[in-house]
Design a protein around this nucleic acid. Structure first.
Lengths: 173, 173
DNA sequence: GGTAACCTGAATCGGCCGTTCCGGTTACCT
DNA sequence: AGGTAACCGGAACGGCCGATTCAGGTTACC
């Protein structure tokens, strides 16, 4: 693959991620191309169709999150801090909305598996946070993950913004 | 106006409010008509175009909210309880998303004035809650109102659901 | 019973978006 | 430097979806 092609592919993914994160689904292919400083044709050279693009982004976002969770989980700090940092990662990375966007399309089995794995990790972490005693217990881990999701998958969400802080304070015990 | 016409107009407004609340903007005129058990033509008999419908709904929702705030504010209970009930009203009434939807269109001056008035009332109430000492002071009333807005204007928001509870807990002091 | 008001929903009209395609450009190898 | 395959740009096409219209049937009310 030629150097410029590789670079352009990169740009496309980056731009798409960004746009999805800040404007939600419904961003058009043309907008993505423009944001990347390329023509639509180039976009289609790299991804056969919209689904392929979404798929790539969703999958790589999930993989990134999974890696991050494992990394943070391995640290020797309170589970609460780990969770906080995971949340921060989710809002800082523009992967925020990707999950929900990707759910608009039919979820292919491979991504579904990955999704479940990440969800499992998150629920496990939340469980540990509760066991450690720093999080309220009157809400189930699954539901808490969902709550965090709504906090993070919000157009315009920023790491450490007021909504996120309030949310986390409301979850702590 | 004939009795059936009045009834149908009513139905249209109700259905639109409901659909907007539970499915967000982007609900089509046909869906609204169907939900109301009417043909699209009837809808257009009562409202010249989509904007007119949205306008009516937004305005009446705001007026309703204003009335509710004044009513609750007059009660002799803690300001915190008043705020809680206002929030509950906002999520129970399907006026939840109306505000944000109505903002998609250009906001006509008259509605803008109404909007500001309601915002003022809310900020004032929040200020009182803070003065009473039951709410954290490290976030400004304006921002808190905005936070509450995101809590309430959420597709699928229900009065007293987990997200709302967590949010309010996070705001209390 | 008559009539104006009302209702219906298929058809129309636009706009937006994904996708294609071909003429022009460029990286890179020899 | 020159050649060529890979790459890029962006106008143009086709489909879809939603707002709006309208001709023809129905109904409330006097």
């Amino acid at each position: 693959m030629r150097a410029d092609a590789r670079r352009n592919r990169e740009r496309i993914v980056t731009s798409a991620l960004e746009l999805f994160a800040e404007r939600g689904p419904g961003v058009s292919m043309e907008e993505i191309a423009r944001e990347a400083g390329l023509g639509v044709g180039t976009l289609y050279r790299h991804f056969p169709d919209r689904r392929a693009l979404v798929e790539e982004i969703a999958t790589s976002a999930l993989l990134g999150l999974e890696a991050e969770i494992r990394l943070l989980t391995a640290k020797d700090v309170s589970r609460w801090d780990v969770l906080t940092q995971v949340v921060a990662y989710c809002t800082a990375q523009p992967l925020a909305l990707v999950k929900s966007i990707a759910e608009g399309d039919a979820v292919p089995p491979e991504r579904h598996a990955l999704q479940s794995k990440v969800d499992g990790l998150l629920r496990g972490l939340v469980q540990e946070v509760q066991d450690e005693g720093s999080m309220r217990r009157d809400i189930s881990p699954a539901e808490i993950v969902e709550i965090l999701n709504t906090a993070v998958c919000r157009p315009g969400a920023r790491a450490g913004d007021a909504v996120t802080r309030v949310m986390l304070d409301g979850l702590s015990s």
